[in-house]
């Protein structure tokens, strides 16, 4: 019983770590590259405009997709490692 609780805690901590890293990437690619950091990316031109414009209109969406699939894959593995997956 005690084992299960400590495993549950380790599982939850690992989960929170993955969530935080993912959300940092999420914020940098949308609010960062798409809006606030766009002036910094203005030197990199993409089809008649700059990289920040691309991130705002398309790049951020592609990053979101990658993040969700990465999270699902990583968590389903983590569930098994900690023995908390559904039978």
């Amino acid at each position: 019983m005690a084992d299960q609780t400590s495993s549950g805690e380790a599982y939850w901590k690992a989960n929170l770590r993955i969530i935080i890293v993912s959300l940092i990437i999420w914020a940098i690619c949308s609010f960062g590259f798409g809006i606030l950091l766009r002036p910094m990316l203005s030197g990199i031109s993409v089809g008649g405009t700059d990289l920040g414009f691309w991130f705002a209109q398309q790049g951020s969406i592609l990053v979101f997709l990658a993040l969700i699939f990465f999270y699902a894959f990583r968590m389903n593995k983590l569930d098994k490692e900690h023995g908390v997956d559904e039978e």
Partner: peptide, 17 residues
């Protein structure tokens, strides 16, 4: 572009949180 980022970025929150 706010509409594009806003209406897709929420799915990351949904999936993770």
């Amino acid at each position: 572009s706010t509409y594009l980022m806003g209406w897709t970025g929420g799915y990351v929150l949904l999936a993770l949180l």
